[in-house]
Design a protein around this nucleic acid. Structure first.
Length: 117
DNA sequence: ATTGTGACATACG
DNA sequence: CCGTATGCCACAA
């Protein structure tokens, strides 16, 4: 077996997958939980997978609650549809009651508790 | 090693 | 609200 150390992607994927249905999180929140660098890395990592590994990337939005990453979906409207399927209301490319739907991994998960695999 | 890139965040004017 | 600047740092070439 080829030994593979956890890459930054895996961290982001794991946390993203941990986001409860009907909730959303932000790049900054994930980055903060990982305590690794910046939110940019999160979006960049998601771009590599883009739902390819079963990662609900549609639950990740920017700090304003906007679907900033929808352009990376196929089609872009896919992101909003997925969110609406989970009961999230999206208006003007922004999540309604985003503040209430926001799920911060750092407040629910522990780096010890969460495993990458 | 260096440069370019990026689904962000924050600060400033 | 908008544009600009800077920080952030993993990864590809």
């Amino acid at each position: 077996m080829e030994k593979e150390r956890p890459t930054y992607y895996d961290q982001v994927f794991a946390v993203t997958r941990a986001v409860p249905k009907g909730r959303v999180t932000t790049y900054g929140a994930i980055a903060d939980f990982l305590a690794l660098g910046s939110a940019r890395m999160v979006g960049w990592a998601l771009n590599k997978v883009a739902y390819g590994m079963g990662v609900p990337a549609h639950r990740v939005v920017n700090r304003k609650g906007e679907l900033s990453g929808r352009v990376h979906f196929s089609p872009p409207s896919r992101m909003q549809e997925l969110l609406e399927q989970e009961g999230i209301v999206v208006e003007n490319d922004q999540v309604r009651d985003f503040r209430e739907l926001l799920w911060i991994p750092a407040e629910y998960l522990s780096q010890e508790d969460f495993d990458e695999d």
